[in-house]
Design a protein around this nucleic acid. Structure first.
Lengths: 228, 228
DNA sequence: TTCATGGTTCGATGATACCCGAAGCATTGA
DNA sequence: TCAATGCTTCGGGTATCATCGAACCATGAA
């Protein structure tokens, strides 16, 4: 009888698109509810529940009950590392997905990633700042230029206050869903908060969608234009 | 549209037991033919061919034509590393396979591994020698004792001749299919040859099965008993 | 208690794909 | 040229499993 680690089981568990989406969503380190994960994977809650129990059965997830909610998170660091390794290998082989992902296009347009803006608009924001030399440096390691500081102050962001925080001000987020960089860190958080404070956008309850009003949409385009 | 590394595709490719068996067999670093891999996975060549093209399509394998044969090997080091990581994770979650593997129980009983005996009998052989202090050392690094040399000489094996070869005489093989150690190296080869020479066993054509005759079976048990 | 919400379980459906028999190429040797 | 070997392709049978509707539990609020 052949014995040994059952990588086939592990592979098949990871190998379902819905489950893979959930796992990658959980790579944020955050614990998410079944409903959130279902939305993330673009499936119904029943289906998600089935997937979650499989993932838990394989030891990839841990579950924490808290009141009426059940929070799911990756079991430990090792799981995240293996997923990371798989993503690296997939990327190096040019295995990119296209049609999977959340059904709701709003999620792809603008959503919250931790506490900053992700999705198309998140990428646009970063590109715009970089194209106009308000940022300097590389995609992964960058900083505000003087012009950048002025620009953000005009927008009503207290850059100096951000710099007093412990968190890095400028931090790139190579979000799993995009291969493009977008802005994270203290500045990323401040920008999203400011958009909401200005009434440009609001968080849609019970989802990760950021909904821009028509006026806010226009203002965003004005402040963060891109060449193409 | 979500884009990013498609770990689901990668997972599903690895996630089939037959393909996983092939991949693990290739982790030896050796290039194997389609027929060998089919036998390793316990499936027919046609099916194996289909699997191999999928693995190659996913960039996990590379193929080398040589005459009438086609040798398959892991594409590169990265693939092996990811597989290793998966095996580690699976092991840490207690995900061990039990019922998979070659369908033919004869293959599990006694088969050739490169050029030495593997399977249940291979493990039994090693255990027996170790229990009776004919071997000294650890599971991975061991040597013959004087008693061991005498024992093998009685069996008709020219130990001194083996020692004149370049290959190590004693070498453990932590075969991928067994977590138990069995005997490889020049001595492993010599033992298998001797079993065949003595008429205890013979290689079944076109497979890796080693078939022991009833008489050979009994002689093997006599020479290599185990306590349990 | 009653209602509402978050999740799970059950059953049925449909699609995916694993598998092998048979036939078809390709290469080598006689 | 013929035969043998190694491998791939094709076609169909079968089984697994993802999916969702509906019903069922559990927790918390009114």
């Amino acid at each position: 009888m052949k014995e040994g680690p059952d990588i086939a089981l592990l592979g098949s568990v990871i190998g379902d698109p819905a489950r893979a989406n959930m796992l990658i969503a959980l790579m944020s380190g955050k614990a998410l509810t079944a409903t959130e994960l279902a939305s993330e994977a673009g499936i119904t809650v029943q289906t998600a529940s089935s997937h979650l129990s499989k993932l838990e059965g394989a030891g990839l997830l841990q579950q924490r009950k808290q009141g009426r909610h059940r929070y799911f998170a990756l079991a430990d660091e090792d799981v995240a590392e293996v997923l990371e390794a798989l993503m690296g290998l997939a990327a190096s082989r040019g295995l990119m997905r296209t049609r999977t992902g959340p059904k709701d296009p709003a999620l792809r347009r603008a959503r919250v990633c931790y506490n900053h803006l992700a999705g198309d608009l998140g990428v646009q924001l970063f590109d715009s700042l970089q194209q106009r030399r308000l940022l300097t440096g590389t995609e992964t390691d960058f900083a505000l230029t003087d012009a950048g500081r002025d620009f953000l102050e005009d927008l009503g962001i207290d850059v100096e206050a951000l710099e007093r925080e412990r968190r890095p001000v400028c931090k790139s987020c190579l979000d799993w869903s995009e291969r493009r960089t977008h802005m994270a860190g203290a500045l990323g958080t401040a920008l999203l908060d400011r958009f909401i404070g200005l009434g440009w956008a609001e968080r849609v309850p019970k989802s990760r969608i950021i909904s821009f009003s028509p006026k806010g949409q226009k203002a965003f385009e004005t402040h963060f234009p891109t060449v193409n």
